[in-house]
Design a protein around this nucleic acid. Structure first.
Lengths: 199, 199
DNA sequence: ACCTGAACACCGTTCAAGT
DNA sequence: ACCTGAACACCGTTCAAGT
């Protein structure tokens, strides 16, 4: 019941606990992939072969589960930002990163909404990961804007919202893979600065 | 129980029935506005002061409720398409219509998703309204594309998805009104055809 | 013609009790 | 240290029974 009863290191110490942990993650991965991020947690527990109370013991919130499933992808994405800045010009770096972010965000139905919610809610277990994404977006965007290739009337939060919106659109119908690319290319064209045209 | 027991004309015939109908609509409007399109229907019934079974008698599905709330807006939007085609050049007509559609679609949280679902599901009560929107979008888009002002690699379904995605984005954070405009302008810039640039 | 109470199967969340 | 059954308050949906 008390805090000392929680996982000391972030992982269960006993072998049976670690097996349960792993089973829960596999079950959650499958269930979220099939039914989206707001699938039934009872269903996840059922697939893992444990009680719903056990799921709650290992992952106190749905976001904690998501965080564990997504952390690797998010961390890599943050690192990618640095790589891209080093190897490409500012505009191309931003565009390449946006494409990778959209892929991660479209992994589960409902994930774009979860990411947007986590950005705003400091209490979410996903919050620090998403704040990391914002920091990366901020870097890339600021450079691209200074270079003059990207419109200036946009901040990192709006950029993340727009990318997630495209990931959302991709998930809304059963489209071919390159329909997803098309949504993204719409956004990217829209981001690109160009001479003023008559309105 | 049988079909003859349903509303013969689409409206209750007795005065008390019509009052209940109206109360349900007012309650649904408020509840959806506050909590989004997937708010509790029991809550709606509670606010209307009737039993949940009565709500189901008047509106057999959540979509039926939405359809009644949105039909006016959707019908006007279809008519607007004809007006805009008559009074503006093809590119401007499409852009103006897109702005109006985005306003309607952002009325409730969750509405963009409902619209996308209704487009794909012929069984949805919202389907015919949404199919009407697609027909309008089809007209406007085809003309704009023939005029050469709008990129050609896009169909009406993808256009509707993209506009709804921007409505979705606007709803995801508590943004100022013109952040919504900015999302839309990103899309509109992206739609606009322009000379090929080096990739 | 219209309304309701009650039921059913589900869900998220918590807690005392077991090993 | 770890797991479970059972409870609570909710939800969507349906149906028999009332006026």
């Amino acid at each position: 019941m008390n805090d000392a009863d929680a996982w000391p290191t972030g992982l269960p110490v006993r072998a049976d606990g670690r097996r349960t942990h792993e089973h829960l993650l596999v079950a959650a991965q499958k269930t979220f992939a099939e039914q989206g991020t707001d699938a039934s947690l009872r269903e996840v527990a059922r697939r893992a072969g444990v009680s719903i109370a056990t799921l709650y013991r290992h992952f106190p919130t749905r976001e904690a589960l998501l965080q564990t499933l997504l952390q690797h992808g998010f961390d890599k994405l943050r690192a990618r930002a640095a790589d891209l800045i080093a190897s490409l010009d500012p505009g191309q770096a931003l565009v390449a990163w946006i494409r990778e972010l959209a892929l991660v965000s479209a992994r589960y139905d409902g994930l774009p909404a979860s990411v947007m919610a986590a950005l705003q809610d400091p209490g979410s277990t996903l919050h620090s990961s998403c704040a990391g994404l914002r920091a990366a977006a901020d870097d890339l965007l600021a450079r691209a804007q200074r270079s003059g290739h990207i419109r200036a009337d946009l901040d990192a939060d709006q950029l993340l919202a727009a990318v997630n919106a495209m990931a959302w659109a991709t998930r809304q119908a059963s489209w071919t893979a390159d329909a997803g690319d098309r949504f993204l290319s719409l956004l990217i064209e829209g981001l690109t600065a160009r001479p003023i045209r008559p309105t």
